[in-house]
């Protein structure tokens, strides 16, 4: 309320206009520097989540789990098919989104 009273009392005087000009300049600079801060945080590209698609050799049942080091396509792993118990091999390894898409989400 004090601010409003102050403005009303000084209404129409010159230096209030100067005050406005100065505050606009200050606001522009503040905007420029705050913008800079945001961009500085920028990109560090976190590593994507990798999925390994296992496929049963016997019945073709597919199962997806997290990628483990040493996985490669066509590798027969120690895991067993959840449906029939036969050995499984790695059918595909992929991420669900490419790095550029992840940014848009």
């Amino acid at each position: 309320m004090n601010v409003l009273n102050f403005l009303l009392q000084n209404q129409g005087t010159q230096w209030l206009d100067y005050l406005l000009i100065i505050s606009i300049v200050v606001a522009i600079f503040a905007f420029m520097f705050s913008n800079r801060g945001v961009r500085k945080a920028g990109y560090l590209g976190k590593p994507p989540e990798i999925h390994t698609e296992l496929m049963c050799i016997e019945c073709g049942f597919k199962e997806i789990r997290k990628f483990r080091e040493g996985d490669y396509i066509g590798k027969t792993t120690d895991e067993k098919c959840k449906k029939c118990g036969a050995p499984v091999h790695i059918n595909l390894i992929y991420t669900l989104f490419s790095p550029m898409e992840e940014k848009n989400q």
Binding site: H51, L92, T95, S98
Partner: peptide, 16 residues
């Protein structure tokens, strides 16, 4: 594919 897709981990869209 784009350059970034070519040298980053294969996405499902490409693998399939």
């Amino acid at each position: 594919m784009s350059l970034i897709e070519a040298i980053s981990i294969m996405s499902k869209k490409i693998a399939t």
